[in-house]
Amino acid sequence: MTAPSPRAGTRRPRPLLMIAVYAALSVATAAVLYPVLLVIKKAFEPGRQFALSASPVPEDVTLEHFRGLLGQRGAGGELAFLQHALASVAVALATTLVGIALACTAAYALSRFRFPGRRTALTTFLVVQMFPASLLMLPLYVLLDQLHLLNSLTGLVLVYSTTAIPFCVWTLKGYFDGLPRELLEAARVDGAGPARIFFTIVLPLARPGIAVTALFSFMTAWNEFIMASTFLTDEGKYTLPVLLQSSVGQFSADWGRFAAGALVTSVPVMVLFYVLQKYLVGGLTAGAVKG
């Protein structure tokens, strides 16, 4: 953001406006931070229920929730939380790899080549992104049932790929669009075939874009809840979101365990999100507007 120009707008505004602006921002910030502070407080306060007081300051500090969360052992003596974390990592990683691997070439084709049906393909990828995954959940459930892929992490990766591939195609196309034409022209004149151009010149150039897309894809799969809950039956296979939700289920609610788990699960992706968020808005609005 550039410094405000010295001529306009630096006159001190009316005090009423200043108060209103600071008040609005402060109220909004307080409303934003309050639930977060509550969760942090609950993670460190003993007891399975939220405390009666509404203040965000913990009255008593304990690490028992973290110990219980991270130290819980499953039926075979294995560390349960580690198992769930590994499940989440495996699923998110596999989804990202599938998404990127399948989407790279298609995104490049949609960006650089002109062929009949290109506009239809572009619209299709955009439209598929917009529609809720929950609509496809039932047919996917029936299909995976027939293939005996229910209650398996492989099946879950397939389900996630349904949304990951269109997202990767669309986002990568945006990056490929921004690559300098001259470089590619020069390579073509030099006699390189399109495949060679793609693998030796385009891909290395687009590495930052691919990395960003991969990270967003990973985050989306990491944070996904409802499909994992529906497609996985065996508690031992649960990914982290399902584990968190089941700790505050209908019949036994341990909010302390939930709060500790929420912190451990979401702090890494929140940090990642902060690093990446400026890429996200640009891609979304640019893509939607240009169509």
């Binding site: 495996a90 990683l93 596999a94 790899l97 398996s152 992490l153 290395p204 590495r207 296979k237």
Partner: peptide, 23 residues
Amino acid sequence: LSRSRPAARAAALAAALALAACG
């Protein structure tokens, strides 16, 4: 990134398959 990707890809796929096979 370019050096580690093939190895990372193989490892991740192996992990996913192994976890699925556990079932």
